[in-house]
Amino acid sequence: MLLEVASLKAFYGASQALFNVDLTVSEGEVVALMGRNGMGKTTTIRAVCNLTPPRGGSVRLAGTDLRGRRPHHVARLGIGLVPEGRRCFPNLTVEENLVAAARSGAWTLERVNTLFPRLKERRDQMALSLSGGEQQMLAIGRALMTNPRLLILDEATEGLAPVIRQDIWAAIRTLKQDGLSILVVDKTLPELLPVADRCTILENGRSVWTGRPAELDKTLQDRFLGI
């Protein structure tokens, strides 16, 4: 098992956001983390990366305990995070954004440019001048440059134009074919479910259902994901 999260608990100040989250991602697997807004998806991701240090439960990456490690250490151990809202470094060029994160491995500038040819065209532009879709490509590219064992995408296609979404999904499918393990959060089920090998649903800070996408029937969708 690559990522093993058990009984995870997390707080923002005094208010508890996660009560009991169990989540696993195996090598080469794509897992969708689902749930309505405010149910704890982003908090789970933040807790895994130790950006919001968890106060209970365990987080292991390939057997290594991640709890209590600094965020940069967690990233070095092999978690590449594409945060919600992209968060590129606005006043660095596209290439500087990528190079700043680089660690040696299979993913290089050339390979990222092959995955996202747009980034190559825009290499000398400031990240702040990119469109939302291009920034998302850059954020994914930046995470890949760290040569992660597990890629985490929070709201992979939120707020992007439909055409751009297709490009992002195509890239995610390519990454899956390459055998990368991915944990992905997104709300567009028609695109998400075919990519995912497994789904975990959160409700009120608890993982309430885990199964294969085919098992996620209309009743379950209405109960846990409907608005």
């Binding site: 990366c49 950006l51 600094r70 965020p71 940069h72 990233a75 070095r76 590449g80 995070l81 945060p83 968060r87 470094f89 606005p90 006043n91 660095l92 700043a100 994160a101 660690r103 930046r142 995470a143 440059m145 760290t146």
Partner: peptide, 11 residues
């Protein structure tokens, strides 16, 4: 520009 984000890419 973003110290938290730098940590999240392993620096």
């Amino acid at each position: 520009q973003n110290a938290v984000r730098v940590a999240a890419v392993g620096i």
